[in-house]
């Protein structure tokens, strides 16, 4: 097994065990639910990193249209969407207990919902095109625009208005609280762990799709040799 997969497993267990057992700051309203920082927030960090990888491969595809570049772009986008959905759902549960409603209409909540819809449209666009090369090219271009809208939606717009999210709308970020260094000791490994887990799934999906394409190609060869 590759070294980074072993690291993923170690870091995931560290996140889980350290995330529940290591001390956290005692804060009003969030109370013990502050530990969600190790599970909810890494979904978003992981999503951003995996989607950045996706747009990297989309750009690579536009320069060099190969099967692998396209497969990495699309499978990264898929895992990014998965992490985004997990992020939004876990966020809703957390919001119910700290803000009082599942959907608070918080600017960051709304913006991340829009961002997810933009990426879901990526899937719809891709699946609506028949020709493989056209599909790869059009979705690569769309991918670049999708990522370009993601940045202002998640990082700029929520900071310009009142947002309940820490670090937005004049709220202090979690890192400005006391005892922040204990949380960082779990939080950073957690981000790496969940991102690597996402990347692991991406590589599995890509390898599977490559195999699938080879099988299809072989079937076509057999078919044409039979016809000849």
């Amino acid at each position: 097994m590759k070294w980074w997969k072993i690291m993923t497993i170690i870091l995931l267990f560290y996140t889980l065990i350290g995330g529940f057992l290591l001390p956290v700051p005692r804060l009003a309203i969030v109370n013990e639910s502050i530990r969600n920082l190790y599970f909810h927030v890494p979904m978003w960090f992981g999503m951003i990193i995996i989607l950045a990888i996706s747009v990297y491969y989309a750009l690579r595809y536009l320069r060099q249209p190969t099967e692998l570049n396209d497969l990495y772009a699309v499978e990264s986008a898929n895992v990014g969407i998965l992490l985004g959905i997990l992020g939004i759902v876990t966020g809703m549960v957390w919001a119910q207990y700290t803000w009082g409603t599942y959907w608070h209409g918080d600017p960051k909540q709304n913006a991340s919902a829009i961002a997810l819809l933009i990426y879901l449209a990526y899937s719809v666009l891709r699946n609506s095109l028949e020709d493989a090369q056209q599909r790869a090219k059009v979705s690569a271009v769309y991918n670049v625009f999708a990522f370009a809208t993601l940045i202002p939606l998640l990082f700029i717009l929520p900071r310009l208005t009142d947002s309940m999210h820490p670090g937005n709308g004049g709220n202090p970020g979690f890192n400005s609280y006391d005892l922040d260094s204990t949380m960082r000791m779990v939080f950073y490994p957690a981000v790496i762990a969940w991102t690597l887990l996402g990347w692991w799934i991406v590589t599995l999906r890509v390898r599977w799709r490559v195999l699938q394409n080879r099988v299809n190609e072989n079937a076509l060869k057999v078919e044409s040799s039979l016809l000849a």
Binding site: Y14, L22, P23, L179, S181, T182, R184, M185, Y188, P189
Partner: peptide, 8 residues
């Protein structure tokens, strides 16, 4: 990143 756990 894990170092310095004990004194906290």
């Amino acid at each position: 990143l894990f170092l310095g756990i004990n004194h906290l």
